[in-house]
């Protein structure tokens, strides 16, 4: 009688491999995950890639060197950099970001051949802007306009062609209203200022103005030199207007363009300033 040869313990090997593999995975994924060092920009987190793109845009605004901007963008490993910059420009525009940042991103996106939303506003604004010698930072005007602003310069006629998008989820309310009847101030305007609770202007807010027999719709942000959240409307004398931030505010009624008298006794049409912001305690950013 021949002694039977012991069989190889395949089950034990298989069990060991499965248990060991599971343990190894747990160690590599949770206990000691990959820790990157000396990475390329393509390995940055999404947020940091956006910060990097913004810096590339601002550097482009400074030196106007498109080839260098392309080389820098190439390190991000993004397939369609023009689209990526345009998307970021649109996001900044819709979020009411700093005007300079919107300008930088929009300018670079346009130079790369994309069509960002804010192109109508910032198109062709590229110009190297070295501030040699300006070691003292210049203040930026991001505050809510004062109730008695100085007269604005000659109105700029930019044809509004924005995409109808709502830029903020929060409700807005009328927080201030001025009526100006002054020889030195443009007459018959409805001036709308939309800002976050921190006073930052919000562009691309849809504004609807209605009057008897007519209505008009336009958007904030087309005169960023005044305020990113500014828009205005020229009234006809003798009408009563209603202003609404579409989907965001209650209608403001009773804006009457009947004649008023200036300080010098001249007959004029009043200008209304309407200030909108989130209600107290509700965040707009």
């Amino acid at each position: 009688m021949r002694a039977s040869k012991p069989r190889f313990p395949w089950i034990a090997l298989l069990a060991g491999l499965i248990l060991g593999f599971s343990g190894g995975l747990y160690y590599a994924w949770f206990l000691n995950p990959v820790n990157l060092v000396n990475i390329a920009p393509s390995q940055l987190t999404s947020a940091d890639q956006q910060a990097y793109i913004l810096l590339i845009s601002e550097a482009y605004l400074h030196d106007g060197d498109l080839e260098r901007a392309r080389e820098r963008l190439a390190t991000l490993g993004i397939r369609d950099v023009a689209q990526a910059v345009a998307v970021q420009a649109d996001s900044a525009f819709l979020a009411g970001a700093d005007t300079l940042q919107i300008r930088a991103l929009t300018t670079l996106a346009e130079a790369l051949g994309a069509q960002p939303m804010a192109a109508d506003i910032f198109s062709g604004t590229i110009a190297p802007t070295p501030v040699a010698g300006s070691a003292i930072p210049t203040a930026t005007s991001e505050t809510v306009p004062s109730p008695t602003p100085s007269p604005s310069p000659t109105p700029i006629s930019i044809t509004p062609t924005p995409t109808p998008l709502i830029v903020v989820e929060t409700e807005l309310e009328l927080i201030g209203r001025n009526v100006i009847c002054d020889d030195e101030y443009p007459a018959g305007l409805i001036e709308i200022y939309v800002s976050t609770e921190f006073g930052r202007g919000i562009p691309a807010v849809e504004v609807q103005v209605m009057w008897e027999g007519g209505e008009d719709t336009f958007y904030t942000g087309l005169k960023p030199e005044v305020n990113p959240g500014y828009a205005d409307f020229q009234m006809e004398p003798g009408q009563v207007y209603t202003v609404t931030l579409v989907g965001l505010s209650e209608p403001v009624v009773g804006i009457d363009s009947s004649d008023c008298f200036t300080g010098s006794g001249q007959i004029s049409t009043p200008t209304y300033q309407l200030f909108f912001a989130p209600p107290q305690g509700e965040s707009g950013e």
Binding site: G23, L36, Q43
Partner: peptide, 24 residues
């Protein structure tokens, strides 16, 4: 089996990370 499996699992886990591998 445990040893070989653990080694293989760790190598696989580092090469195919469960999370998006990116850094600041």
């Amino acid at each position: 089996g445990l040893g070989l499996g653990a080694l293989g699992g760790a190598v696989f886990g580092w090469l195919v990370p469960i999370q998006d591998v990116s850094a600041g």
